[in-house]
């Protein structure tokens, strides 16, 4: 934690997808953030705002033939992952950086037992590992994610496990090589709340014992509030606000962040109707010029329709991209 240099630095990342000869989708625009050791960064935003694409870029997992990176660097311990050859990237993937996805079934091979898959992951990592040692390590990994009867689990096939079990096995699989960075893309969205609570609890414990840095993607503000140290709010492919988690919830500055927080019915909310953000999220094709939020924003001025706002510091280590953030007032949060 004493480390001064971030583990991961994403600098000015932009991602385009080519649809045909003439058109390209601007999926992500000028995204920058730092992630320190042992820190959890939450990324929140609505469907299609670019959360997954941003994280897939870290390991170059976007479809290579259609993806272009018009700008950006992704520095992992100083090495630029974005411009690395696949061959150089391979030893990093799954070892130093691991990923957990929303639907664990897609990441597991249905034809092999959990044990085979865990041992395989270990042996790719370290080809000289003895079979017996791989077995022991796998057993320990499954035990560490608090699955009862780990011997039996190693012998079972993925489809025989419940959703919560599978997600825990996925986490065991991702953690087995002690990665420095764990990227979790909506890891609990498909789970029931009591199972989600188990998984979140487990992730926090692993983070504490191993000092793993985590990027946690979700659209659930409650989950972010409990998991993240810092939060990145994205809208329309761009970052609109970044702050420490408590600061973000007590003093949100961006009108979109404020709208999100206000529209959430907290248990002590007394009103008859919920506060809403009017309109709907534009698709990437009809994203307005200037600030992408301008067609839904109560504070929009001419400047908002022309240029994307620069980042301004609203407080120490709290940045916001809005022309009018000083005028924006939240009702639910406690911005003064």
């Amino acid at each position: 934690m004493e480390e001064k240099n971030p583990l991961l630095q994403v600098v000015d990342l932009s991602v385009d997808f080519r649809l045909n000869r003439k058109t390209a989708l601007h999926a992500v625009r000028n995204v920058s953030f730092d992630l320190y050791r042992g820190e959890t960064l939450g990324i929140v935003g609505e469907s299609g705002c670019g959360k997954s694409v941003t994280c897939m870029s870290i390991l170059q997992l976007n479809p290579a033939s259609r993806t272009r990176y018009p700008s950006g660097q992704i520095l992992f311990e100083g090495r630029d992952l974005l411009h690395m050859k696949q061959k150089q990237l391979r030893p990093i993937r799954g070892n130093e950086i691991a990923m957990v996805f929303q639907e664990p079934m897609t990441a597991m091979n249905p034809l092999f037992t959990i044990g085979d898959q865990l041992m395989e992951a270990l042996r790719v990592h370290n080809p000289r590992m003895e079979k017996a040692e791989a077995y022991e390590r796998s057993l320990e990994a499954v035990r560490s994610v608090k699955i009862p009867n780990p011997e039996r689990i190693l012998k079972s096939y993925p489809f025989t496990l419940s959703g919560g079990m599978r997600q825990r096995v996925m986490i065991a699989m991702a953690m087995i090589t002690r990665p420095k960075l764990l990227i979790c893309d909506e890891p609990t969205t498909a789970l029931d709340v009591t199972i989600q609570a188990q998984v979140l609890d487990l992730m926090n414990e692993l983070k504490q014992t191993h000092g793993t840095s985590i990027i946690f993607i979700t659209h659930d503000l409650g989950v972010i509030s409990e998991m993240a140290d810092r939060v990145l709010i994205m809208y329309g492919g761009r970052v609109c606000e970044e702050a420490d988690v408590d600061e973000l919830f007590t003093a949100p500055r961006h009108p979109y962040t404020q709208g999100l927080i206000d529209s959430h019915p907290s248990p002590d909310y007394e009103g008859e109707r919920l506060k809403v953000i009017p309109g709907s999220v534009p698709t990437l094709r009809d994203m307005p010029a200037g600030c992408p939020f301008n067609n839904r924003c109560a504070y929009a001025t001419d400047a908002c329709r022309d240029v994307f706002p620069d980042f301004e510091e609203a407080a120490p280590s709290h940045v916001v991209a809005c022309h009018n953030w000083r005028a924006a007032k939240t009702e639910g949060g406690k911005a003064e």
Partner: peptide, 20 residues
């Protein structure tokens, strides 16, 4: 109810999670 993630800082403070 306790498994529902707490939203605000105040809620977080009062929260006692019962893990099943």
């Amino acid at each position: 109810f306790s498994a529902t993630p707490a939203f605000t800082a105040a809620e977080k403070k009062n929260k006692q999670r019962i893990l099943l």
